[in-house]
Write a protein that binds this DNA or RNA. Structure first.
Lengths: 263, 263
DNA sequence: CTTGCCCACTCGTCTATACGAGTATGCGTG
DNA sequence: CACGCATACTCGTATAGACGAGTGGGCAAG
């Protein structure tokens, strides 16, 4: 007995079916996972086990696993096995997360929230730099040539969950606390208001897509995990766009939540 | 010469690199696509071309393609080739799309919008049914046992882009126009208000994830296309949840847009 | 008991081959 | 000219084998 894994939880192949063998195997594994016969974090039967159980070649089994991996259901660890991917705790982003009320406290929303949820928050790879505005950024900020870019990465319990860059018109941010790595209590929105730019409203654009290889690296994303791409523009009471925040989030770690009036 | 495709757009492998051969090939193809050397909808070199160009086995080339497919960059067509996946036109969903103003016209927002964008809208697989509320739905609607479920699928130019189900408490919807396949001008929100349920606000929850096999089928999704899962709850002025709309959208066809006051 | 090594097991990468099935093109037949 | 078929080219599926590399447990030496 080379395996202590209950391969018996799986059925047999239907040779009369039109469905490809590797799809049938993937279907059976998926069903077993969905029905909880394999639990979160649990090890699936090894490739060798499945080769023996189904009487197919190893590449066929690997093909099945690659389907499930693409669906984000499992992940493999070299030398250890293939595991049911655990659902990470999600972070809820409410639409009122930038209200002045929340800004009063000294700590950032991210830290407060994470502490409340019992996870350890970190912010790293902070970079504050002057840059040429990209074409898109220039359009969003109103024909601005140069911008101040503030980049940072957010982690929960050591896992990167979000990578964000704020862009501000350089004429507005230069030589202000906003250009400091730590802009102080209440973050850059508090500083903007102190500088006389009273915030009026935000526009948020939301997309979802598969990550680029760079994003996979930065967010240490597992296969089959999309990203949520959120672009927020902050406008002051004079209608000027004073900041654009470009955020890429690991989709399995987030639920966005908005409350809309029924006007 | 078996191929008219300019394989010459691609470089050579680096045998000293630690990076796996199939990843190097995928990198080169990705770069060529990103730089526009292969354009949207264009056919990539065939597997056989790449086998010859790189001097590797076919499975290695296929492995490279499968990476790009998982990233949503390419799609393959049996018997035709592998193509750069075209970016479909996106549908923008604005946060004011349910305002009473938009409800005045007879036609649904989806139809109006699509006509304006010059695409042909369709709504199909309409199903109106009484059901037992799922645990989650019951919680959202306030301990409701039975619901009226309204299912429909939206298509643009023949392509399915969205699948939505509205759930309403049965005691509220039974024997009203809401239980009709076509609820009339302004949709069910107009009918709800006529029935005395004045809408106060909506809550929207947004997630992104890879689609289930059923969703792949319903939305005819290409590999590497995530879905946006939106759950909207409508509340009346008495604080009662009067509808929950569960929507699954092809992520490559949508940009969601919200405007938030900076209170 | 602790340390270090070996080995079994695991997934990762790659080759070579075979056959099947969908697509498109061109050519020959009617 | 129109139709249908042969054919070449495409990707899809599956097999069999090889070697590499990460992991972890057990065993032997110290």
């Amino acid at each position: 007995m080379t395996s202590s894994i209950p391969v018996g939880l799986l059925g047999a192949l239907d040779p009369t079916s039109d469905r490809a063998v590797f799809r049938q195997i993937a279907d059976q594994l998926r069903e077993a996972i969905d029905k909880g016969r394999f639990k979160e974090g649990e090890k699936l039967p090894s490739e060798a086990d499945l080769v023996e159980h189904y009487g197919v070649s190893r590449m066929t089994v690997r093909n099945s696993f690659s389907i499930l991996q693409g669906e984000g259901l499992v992940h493999s660890e070299h030398g250890r096995g293939v595991f049911v991917r655990p659902r990470p705790p999600v972070r809820r982003l409410a639409s009122d997360r930038f209200s002045r009320r929340h800004r009063e406290q000294g700590k950032s929303a991210f830290i407060v929230e994470a502490d409340a949820a019992g996870s350890k928050p970190e912010v790293d790879s902070l970079e504050v730099k002057e840059e040429r505005a990209s074409h898109d950024m220039s359009a969003r900020l109103g024909s601005v040539r140069r911008v101040l870019a503030r980049r940072r990465r957010y982690l929960l319990d050591g896992r990167p969950v979000e990578f964000a860059t704020s862009y501000l018109p350089l004429d507005l941010a230069r030589n202000t606390p906003i250009a400091q790595p730590n802009p102080g209590p209440g973050g850059i929105y508090a500083r903007l208001e102190e500088l006389g730019h009273h915030l009026d409203h935000f526009d948020e654009e939301i997309r979802a897509r598969m990550p680029s290889p760079a994003e996979v690296k930065t967010l240490r994303l597992a296969a089959g995990v999309p990203v949520i791409h959120l672009i927020r523009t902050a406008y002051d009471t004079e209608g000027r766009a004073v900041e654009v925040c470009d955020t890429v989030m690991a989709a399995d770690a987030y639920v966005l939540s908005y409350q809309l009036p029924a006007t």
